[in-house]
Structure formats: structure tokens, C-alpha cells
Simulated scan of single mutants.
Amino acid sequence: MFFGPLSDRIGRKEVLLSGMGALAIVTCLLGFADEFYMIVILRGIQGFVAASFAPTDGICF
């Protein structure tokens, strides 16, 4: 609901590349998390950012 309209506005490639970069950063931060609440928060952010890949694939049926 968020990344589909965003990719229509600014472009699929930009959303996909920025999403991949953000996902790499969040995943690295997750490896350094040592408290449970930080793991939960970062996993939520990771799931949100990972959702940027599906609506930007450009496949139309």
C-alpha cells in the first residue's frame, strides 16, 4: 500500500535500489542488536523495507 504508489511516482528502479540499500543497513544493524526490544523494532523495520521489492517488479497481467 505504500511502495506501489511510491514507485509509480519516483520510479521503480529508485524504489528498488533504495529499498535494497535500506534492507542491507537494517540487516547489518540487526546483527549487532543485543537487546530484545531492539531486535523486535529492527525486525519490524526490516519487514517494512523488504516489502518494497514486491510492488516494484513491473509485471502486469
Results as ranks from 00 to 15, higher is better:
Leu16Thr: 10
Ile39Met: 13
Arg12Phe: 01
Phe3Lys: 06
Thr56Met: 07
Tyr37Val: 15
Phe61Pro: 00
Ser18Lys: 01
Gly31Arg: 08
Phe32Met: 14
Pro55Thr: 05
Arg43Glu: 14
Val49His: 01
Ile41Gln: 11
Asp8Phe: 12
Phe53Leu: 14
Phe3Ser: 06
Ile10Glu: 01
Arg9Ala: 10
Leu23Arg: 01
Ile10Leu: 04
Val49Leu: 05
Leu17Lys: 06
Phe36Glu: 15
Ile39Cys: 12
Gly58Val: 00
Arg9Trp: 12
Phe32Trp: 05
Ile39Glu: 14
Phe3His: 07
Asp34Trp: 13
Lys13His: 11
Ala54Leu: 10
Leu17Asp: 10
Phe48Ser: 08
Ala50Leu: 06
Ala24Lys: 05
Gln46Met: 09
Ala24Gly: 02
Thr27Trp: 00
Leu17Ala: 08
Phe53Met: 11
Gly11Met: 07
Phe36Tyr: 12
Ile45Ser: 05
Pro55Ala: 02
Lys13Trp: 14
Val40Gly: 06
Leu23Pro: 04
Glu35Pro: 01
Val15Trp: 07
Met1Asp: 10
Arg9Val: 11
Gly47Met: 04
Phe3Gly: 01
Glu14His: 12
Leu17Ile: 08
Ala50Lys: 07
Cys60Trp: 07
Thr56Pro: 06
Thr27Val: 02
Ala24Asp: 01
Leu30Glu: 08
Gly4Asp: 02
Ser52Ile: 14
Ile25Pro: 09
Phe3Gln: 01
Val26Phe: 07
Tyr37Gly: 09
Gly4Tyr: 09
Gly44Ala: 08
Cys60Thr: 11
Gly58His: 02
Cys28Phe: 14
Ile25Met: 03
Ile45Arg: 03
Ser7His: 04
Leu23Gly: 02
Phe3Ala: 04
Ile41Met: 13
Gln46Leu: 14
Glu14Thr: 12
Cys60Phe: 12
Leu16Met: 11
Gly21His: 03
Gly4Ser: 11
Ile45Cys: 07
Val15Asn: 01
Tyr37Trp: 14
Val40Met: 15
Ser7Met: 06
Gly11His: 00
Ser18Phe: 08
Ile39Phe: 15
Cys60Ala: 13
Ala50Gly: 10
Asp8Glu: 12
Met1Asn: 09
Phe32Ile: 03
Pro5Gly: 00
Arg43Lys: 12
Asp8Lys: 15
Phe32Leu: 14
Arg12Ala: 11
